[in-house]
Design a protein around this nucleic acid. Sequence first.
DNA 1: CAGATCGTTCAGTATTGACTTAACAAACTG
DNA 2: CAGTTTGTTAAGTCAATACTGAACGATCTG
Lengths: 159, 159
Amino acid sequence: MEESVQQFIEKMGILCEKDGMARSAGRIFGLLLASDRPYSLDEIADKLQVSKASVSTNARMLEQLGMIERVSSLGDRRDFYRVEADPWERILRVAQGRWRQMLHVLADAREALPPHMTAGKERLMHAERFHQLLIDETDGLVARWQTLRAGPGRAEDAA
Amino acid sequence: MEESVQQFIEKMGILCEKDGMARSAGRIFGLLLASDRPYSLDEIADKLQVSKASVSTNARMLEQLGMIERVSSLGDRRDFYRVEADPWERILRVAQGRWRQMLHVLADAREALPPHMTAGKERLMHAERFHQLLIDETDGLVARWQTLRAGPGRAEDAA
DNA sequence: CAGATCGTTCAGTATTGACTTAACAAACTG
DNA sequence: CAGTTTGTTAAGTCAATACTGAACGATCTG
């Protein structure tokens, strides 16, 4: 396999791991990102030099997250994987969901905190405000991405 | 210790772990978030029921990330920890840095990809566009957070 | 200076988590 | 139906990770 692609895959593994994903999942995603066509389970296992079982598990995890999808080819019983048409919006939505969780956790804690702990309450409210902002801003960001996605070079003003 | 606070700390540990941090670090951050005053190393170790060594390591990691800070009290040789005045902007900046890394990795891979792999190149360019958008939007987001941070209830139009 | 306190580091250990092999279930082929 | 092929699941193994206890250096106190 291409040396440069191999390096890229490894870097993707590291970066994805830093974001809380499994390293192997990051590698699979990287491989499919830089690929020219969908790959079968065995192909992925072969290219990444891991067992088929490992690929099966991690690929299904990525599928669950909406980052890759399974496609089938006529007259072929195998599953093929490729990255979703736009995995990035999905990533934003997943993050948005986590921020919502965080917001709830923060709010619950603040309400349960004894009244005299004003500093803690203040700090938690601060954190809530921040996460609420993130949640709100995500919608606009997704919208801007949708318009940018289609034609990045065109400077149309249509809202 | 308060039952509700303990639950909060545990949830923060889980959520932080999902974001790629160490679970213990998340717990420390949660404890300090909901606290009324800075805590010493021993206090943290006691409240979280872990060794002082563990707290020392994780607290220094959080300090390195700019999420908590070390403060000293006159006539006291101990270090005290508390969350930074605004850890959230810092978190945004760290994320922005990771997106920059990702952008570079993607660009390198695209350039190194053989010319005939048009689908892969296209997909990588797509990914680059997305991350460039994230990087750009972060600045505006930080700015909006700064204004919101001070007075959340006031509806001033000043740009 | 002797003793005490505090934070960090290091070696050892335990626990978690991931990968592999192998068995299994389902869908196809002759 | 016997035999393949393909994907998933489970048990066992191994490596990575995080925690602990102890030792150390530094700083303060009598």
